[in-house]
């Protein structure tokens, strides 16, 4: 005898059937809170991490002092988060930008005046980039003042120095792209210095500029470096950096 279901019962019925379906269970691992539901218990707290992608970043438990904002000041995490924001806003900018002498500057101007949220996203990308340089520097200082580079974390500090260099390179290659007076002459000052590298100075500068003077070739090169090569490389080094944080026994300290 089929009894009529109330709308509420129907909803729970649909939910039950969905969660029992093969498709649902193929997506969420056994033990995932999306399979079993979540109620607060020590075991379920572990499952949240263990049965999700988060397990690649975090262990199930962390030292109590490491959770306090006053220890890391969130600086490493914020550097990483800013990198993600920059990736998202940067992809948006790429839809409207062509890296040639004739088009670059006017593309940016049109983006600011004629594209919905164009100005806002460009501002976020630029200020976010400056902010990331700052947070990476401050993160380095935090690590130094905590003596967190000492054994067994020496090598992660070295990875960190590489990350700092890559962050500066990312910022500097991006600086040229708007192709305004600020971009052209800041990069002129910067690359003139590179020209003084002993022995290979002129050659290095030529490879970087794609010619003797800054021009369309330079724009294209720096564009590819900025949107593809350096992000690719920095992501690899970030992966090693985070992996080492865990393998070296988690965050250092307490002091």
């Amino acid at each position: 005898m089929a009894t009529k279901m109330t709308p509420q019962q129907r909803m729970t019925d649909i939910a039950d059937k969905t969660q029992g379906s093969q498709a649902w269970n193929s997506i969420f691992r056994p033990g995932s809170i999306f399979r079993k539901g979540y109620s607060d218990s020590p075991r379920n707290r572990s499952y949240v991490i263990m049965n999700s992608l988060l397990y690649h970043l975090h262990p199930v438990k962390v030292k109590r002092h490491a959770v306090k904002v006053s220890y890391t000041l969130c600086l490493g995490g914020l550097s990483f988060f800013l990198f993600i924001l920059l990736t998202i806003t940067g992809i948006f900018l790429m839809f409207f930008y062509r890296p040639t002498e004739a088009q670059a500057w006017s593309d940016i101007r049109n983006l600011q005046t004629g594209v919905a949220f164009g100005m806002l996203v460009r501002n976020m990308h630029r200020w976010g980039a400056h902010l990331m340089v700052l947070t990476v520097f401050l993160h380095m200082a935090r690590v130094f003042y905590h003596g967190a580079y000492k054994a067994p974390r020496e090598f992660n500090w070295v990875i960190g120095v590489i990350l700092l260099t890559l962050t500066l390179l990312l910022s500097f290659t991006g600086y040229l792209l708007p192709w305004d007076q600020l971009a052209l002459w800041a990069v002129t000052v910067g690359t003139n210095m590179i020209g003084y590298t002993p022995v290979f100075g002129r050659q290095t500068r030529f490879v970087l500029l794609g010619s003797i003077e800054i021009g369309t070739n330079t724009l294209l090169r720096w564009y590819v470096l900025h949107v593809l090569l350096f992000p690719f490389v920095i992501v690899i080094f970030m992966a090693i950096h985070f992996w080492r944080v865990r393998k070296d026994g988690g965050i250092s300290g307490p002091l």
Partner: peptide, 30 residues
């Protein structure tokens, strides 16, 4: 970042011009 970017514009100076060197010419702050 959202609030800051709403109120403070990123600079966009005149289009790059090889014949007009700004005085002073400065590298990025870092």
């Amino acid at each position: 970042l959202l609030v800051f970017s709403t109120f403070v514009r990123a600079p966009l100076l005149a289009q790059a011009n090889y014949n007009r060197t700004p005085n002073p010419s400065k590298a990025p702050w870092y």
